[in-house]
Design a protein around this nucleic acid. Structure first.
Lengths: 362, 362
DNA sequence: CTGATACATTGGAACTGTTCCAACTGTTCC
DNA sequence: GGAACAGTTGGAACAGTTCCAATGTATCAG
């Protein structure tokens, strides 16, 4: 089998140098380290699986760069809760890692994770880090991407498809009579972003309605982003009668701004939001939402990964590519468009659109 | 030094048996395992610090039983974000553990953590698990409790004191003219619970006001708990004019129920809530709150623990007992008591208290 | 009661990865 | 030119895990 002695003879160095190289110690010549890395890769060496040294029962939740900042929307914490539940079956532990922080020069991600004795990894990647998943896919380290999807056949993933329900959400608004329907889409270029934008456009296309670029806005996925868009759109000369926010926090901020400005929801403006957990039930009114179950995504990813690690021979567990569906939940923020649409200025002043009548807001 | 050979000769068994015992393998006689545990304890054995086998750079965030369920209030996820930031200085990793899940019969918590090669631990304990912290304090395993405090001198902790600000919050209500001030306190018997209850009682005592048991309620720390208390109190024959919720989620639920029932906040009812992160700014209106910075608690705990591990000789880092203060933030949910107090029935019907006049809610 | 069988428990030995320490190399400085 | 030094490397010692064979114990059929 492959061990440090094998690698040493292949690379033409001592076992001490192999150990130092693999553990990222100082005082190893970079060229030597490179030779060791190559020798280790050529024999498929894995420390975490080293039989004689305690097989690792730790999986990682790995973020490319800085680990989760404040997680207002609750996606990360709901997913983590799911992961922690999913590892119980085979009693694995979960380690939260930042890949970029500890990557040594010339080191591959697989080697970094092996150095930390991680048996498998749940990857949380973003638009500019998709190559991490593709790089790991080629190695022997079991891994799965959560909440993103890939065309490559060798990348494992579990995600939610939100295009269909985004289309349904907008169709729901069209059915209620809305025509001026705005989009507030989060400005992260991932599959989620594209799904929701595409779903919005699908609904317009299917109903023969023209897309209006002045109604489609990229915003920061935060309460401030949602609030800002409400203020901007509702004070414009031709405000929308409905809006679809593709992010929970933007939805909360938008709804809150409506209450501040005296915009009645849904009498003056209908809102469809997005939810990763239970946020929609904590606002007043409860918001109609496209709902994604982040806890389930984490749970299924962790259960598959740990089952695969516990049953290395089971071919049925070799790969996983799962696309779950979101669901559309109709709550209290969607209704018929107003008979007498109005603008609402940033100070709360209502401007009737079909007359010169002006009255003080709320 | 202490190693498996030392333990083996002390316990009168082979090194193989020592290894099996310490790693919780099956097929070891319980009595033998017990002898090994005792021998290991008597020589102060630690695998995580075993020099010849790679010093561990993993700390654990340990929960006594099931790890965090859904973390709506955001305390756990804010704290975790702080921990992940706090370990960066010395490049430690964080593993999330459930202590009870993996504890073998007869095994101590220190041994369990050592078996998992955990160098230090941040403990999240609850009312019925305080003995875990006390047990760990006596061992060589560096540890710190977050968000709870102890009289014992050998327990490290970092927490927030909320009694003073709870008193201030109620004083703020009294200053505004309120006298019938209700308390909705979460039903977990920890120091937080006692702090907030005591602060409430302090304010009453200092102002010579009698405590009214019918206004003091233990509730579940959830939106439903808060909503239920609003419904119950506001429909009673003598409703309060203000209420202090000691938990973020109860506050959100209570505020939401007020909007549902047409209870105007703060015109009909003043609300002081509690916040662990930024929740108070996401509701409408923003709620006045006693604020605790969970992210900071996690950050400081992790930074101290990893500094201590990185500098074993530094006596200044040997122990830490820190009590931070919450702060009182006045926002939009507190005002003068209503001139014409009213009851609001569960269906939203308003009942004027000083007359027989009845009108439909909202 | 006896022998066969299965099972649990244990120790010796082999094995794996890490680190200490000494040696070697090339460079700098006097 | 030689001493001092830093960087790099290998041999050997070491620590912890597991394989495998041996031993002890319980069960059960005859």
């Amino acid at each position: 089998m492959s061990n440090v002695r094998t690698i040493a003879s292949r690379a033409g160095v001592s076992i001490a140098t192999v150990s130092r190289s693999l553990n990222n110690h100082p005082n190893v010549d970079p060229a030597t380290r490179q030779r060791v890395f190559e020798a280790a890769a050529s024999v498929g060496y894995s420390k975490a699986n080293s039989v004689r040294h305690g097989v690792s029962t730790v999986i990682a939740l790995a973020y490319p760069g800085d680990v989760v900042r404040a997680d207002y929307g609750g996606f990360e914490s709901a997913m983590l809760a799911g992961i922690l539940r999913g590892v119980n079956e085979h009693r694995f532990d979960v380690c939260v890692l930042s890949l970029r922080r500890d990557l040594a020069p010339g080191e591959s991600y697989a080697r970094l994770l092996d150095r930390k004795k991680i048996a498998g990894v749940i990857l949380r990647v973003f638009e500019d880090n998709r190559e991490i998943a593709e790089q790991l896919a080629g190695t022997g380290l079991p891994n799965i991407v959560v909440a993103d999807r890939y065309d490559a056949a060798d990348v494992n993933y579990i995600c939610c498809e939100s295009r269909v329900d985004s289309r349904r959400a907008v169709q729901h608004l069209i059915d209620l009579g809305h025509r001026r329907i705005a989009l507030g889409v989060h400005a992260v270029r991932d599959t989620d972003h594209m799904d929701r934008r595409n779903g919005y456009e699908d609904a317009f296309r299917e109903n023969g309605l023209p897309l209006d670029p002045t109604l489609m806005h990229e915003i920061v996925a935060s309460p401030e982003g949602g609030a800002g868009l409400i203020t901007r759109l509702m004070s414009s000369s031709e405000p929308p009668t409905a809006i679809y926010f593709t992010d929970p926090m933007a939805t909360i901020g938008g709804l809150r701004r409506c209450l501040e400005l005296g915009i009645r929801v849904p009498q003056d403006l209908s809102i469809v939001g997005f939810d990763d957990s239970d946020t929609r039930r904590h606002t007043y009114p409860s918001f109609t939402a496209v709902v994604q179950d982040a806890e389930m995504l984490g749970f299924e990813a962790a259960r598959w990964l740990t089952r695969r690690l516990a049953n290395p021979g089971d071919t049925a567990l070799q790969s996983l590519q799962v696309v779950r569906q979101t669901r559309l939940e109709i709550n209290q923020t969607t209704g018929r468009p107003p008979a007498d649409p109005c603008r609402v200025l940033p100070d709360g002043t209502r401007v009737q659109l079909n007359s010169v009548q002006v009255m003080q807001g709320k």
